[in-house]
């Protein structure tokens, strides 16, 4: 490979690590989307908006405490819960009446929801971008054979497996997870044996949205928090869910890995077209496996 000559192994390694930490965010957001899609069959376009709300909320809570370390951790805990609360209210008041409608209607409804959230964010936080700094001990970087690697990215790298483990526990070991998995396969059957499907759906929706909020909270210190970050992430999250297999949490992980890594390799090879690389990877995957790499829940 000719292009490899001017790319040292170390910079490749560093790029991969950065890619992996980006993968973490993508995985957290996409797994939430996948959960909602797999169990509730809702293509939730507003997922990205909730992610944005999570980021803005994190900023606000952290700022309340003067962006101290305590404030940061508090914000990281509270902001996703705030997003979950919003989603709970919306699910109970609006979404729960729409489950029997066509996918197209659900998609448009979530799009409407995202439009409303978008402008609400503009109303509350204004059009300026915000930025948030991580607590001191997560700032700065350490070096890997001469190349700096940000500490916060290391923190992100640790969060990924944590969330994955949590999701695995939730779907495989808890009652609600088992019901949700059964409902994903055959909703009517689960309802027929006397389980409150509506309640389980609400729970799954809230958990999915919580993950969007968590993703937003985690990403907050790494980039500017702006209007429009919702539009950027939602398409990526959808792509990840599709190549992974709809509703499959491990598919989301695999998809996020593919997406994050091709993105970071793209930055090394052709920075201008870095954004195209993951999209190309998606197209290639889909040409050969139109239904995604792993088994979808439907």
């Amino acid at each position: 490979m000719e292009f490899a000559t001017n790319i040292s192994l170390a910079s490749l390694f560093q790029q991969v690590l950065v890619g992996l930490s980006r993968t973490t965010i993508l995985f957290i957001v996409a797994s939430g989307l996948s959960l909602v899609l797999g169990v509730l069959r809702i293509p939730n376009v507003a997922h990205g908006s909730l992610y944005m709300v999570g980021a803005f909320m994190t900023y606000t809570f952290a700022s309340l405490f003067g962006q101290s370390a305590l404030g940061f951790w508090l914000a990281l805990t509270v902001a996703p819960l705030g997003v979950a609360l919003i989603s709970f209210l919306v699910e109970r008041s609006l979404f729960c009446h729409l489950y029997e409608r066509e996918h197209m209607m659900l998609l448009l409804f979530t799009f409407a929801f995202s439009l409303v959230i978008g402008d609400m964010v503009k109303l509350i936080w204004g059009s300026d971008y915000r930025s948030l700094t991580a607590p001191l001990f997560l700032q700065g970087s350490f070096s890997i054979s001469g190349f700096p690697f940000p500490r916060y990215n290391l923190f992100l790298l640790m969060m990924g497996p944590l969330v994955a483990a949590g999701l695995w526990f939730l779907t495989n070991k808890t009652k609600i997870g088992k019901i949700a998995r059964a409902a994903a396969v055959d909703r009517e059957m689960v309802g027929a044996i006397g389980i409150n499907v509506s309640g389980v759906f609400a729970a799954v929706f809230v958990i999915g949205c919580y993950l969007a909020g968590l993703g937003g909270a985690l990403v907050a210190p790494t980039q500017n928090i702006t209007q429009g970050m919702d539009h950027a992430i939602i398409i990526e999250a959808f792509l990840i869910v599709i190549i992974g297999g709809l509703g499959n949490i491990w598919g989301a992980l695999l998809g996020a890995l593919i997406f994050g890594l091709t993105d970071s390799i793209g930055i090394l090879l052709l920075p201008q077209f870095a954004i195209v690389f993951p999209y190309m990877a998606v197209v290639i995957v889909l040409i050969f496996r139109p239904k995604g790499l792993l088994k979808s829940t439907w």
């Binding site: 409804f109 799009f111 409407a112 929801f113 439009l115 409303v116």
Partner: peptide, 9 residues
């Protein structure tokens, strides 16, 4: 867009 969203809902 807020108005559009509400109308759409």
């Amino acid at each position: 867009t807020l108005i559009l969203g509400l109308v759409l809902m």
